[in-house]
Amino acid sequence: MSKSLLNHILLLVLLFIGIILSLSLGSVSIPFKEIIKSLLALSVENSTWDYIIVNYRLPKTITAILIGSGLAVSGLLMQTLFRNPLAGPYVLGLSSGASLGVAFLIMGAGLLSGILGEFIFSKWAIILAASGGSLLVMLAVLSTAQRVKDTMTLLIIGLMVASLTSAVVSVLAYFSNSDDLQLYIFWSFGSLGNLSWQEVGILASCWFIGLGFAIFCLKNLNALLLGENYAKSMGVELKSNRILIIVSTSILAGSATAFAGPIAFVGLAVPHLVRQLIPTNDHRILLPSVILGGAILMLICDVIAQLPGNENTLPINAVTSIFGAPVVIWLLLRKRKLNF
């Protein structure tokens, strides 16, 4: 059996363990046997337990898998497109776009409340604002992508858009009251819970569409490893390919941000973590491993965020970085180099 296949099996086992842990741990302790019963739609001893599993833990576990893998895949796409190990899903300003949308909704609410009434405080309003913000940034980036010849220019434009939008958010924050500010900050902490089955369904549809685009690009992503000039000489249409990659990233990372808030670190780190285990740059092998790796990392972070045995939870966005960053630093120091 090849080493890469063996490592994929290892990742699958880890994913399975992650799913079990994520389903079994929480503020209410539920016997493992009852969790299995509930998942198999058998009768459960305590109907509250059944309710918690079906309507709270299971959607959250699925959300963690979708968001972790979606962010990891978009990180991989951006790193290859820009040939830069520091690129991540948010390098083109998607999360700052989403933040801007939500910031306008929450902190600019005074202006809008007359028109929208109670709607602005609903969860759907935040999701729509985040998607709208990301979409706006994505359209701006796509229109520049049509015009610029050089991918590096696109990277710099993305970073400029990101700092521009964060500046606007700062201005909004400066003029807003403490309640609104707190609401905004809570959104920016990120959250995997609270998604209804309907919302999980929408997130999953976005995931499938975004991943479909990514799979369509796989062959050209490999050609891009040789650099754009070689890729073009072998018949890769650079512009349309670049647009496909941006659209895929935007759908995956944009939907993740809309439903769970901006989650740092996962998209940037997972491709590097996975390459430590499966040292290749062939995207046909990397894509499935990155999907598994992203899902596993997100599930682990979710379990840690639950603070098992405690009623409080930590903000997921902080957990991903606090626990993830040292792991990556340790791995890199051990191997002494980045497999890129």
């Binding site: 040939r83 369509f216 796989l218 062959k219 490999n222 050609a223 490893l225 040789l226 650099g227 000039n229 070689y230 072998m234 018949g235 890769v236 390459r275 040292p279 290749t280 740059n281 062939d282 046909r284 497999n339 890129f340």
Partner: peptide, 25 residues
């Protein structure tokens, strides 16, 4: 050119078959 060296010799040379391979390469 900024060619990735994180490929085996075989993998890099095989990328030359890009114009002839199927959609998945």
């Amino acid at each position: 050119e900024h060619v990735s060296k994180q490929l085996t010799v075989m993998e890099l040379v095989a990328l030359g078959r890009h114009p002839y391979t199927n959609w998945l390469g």
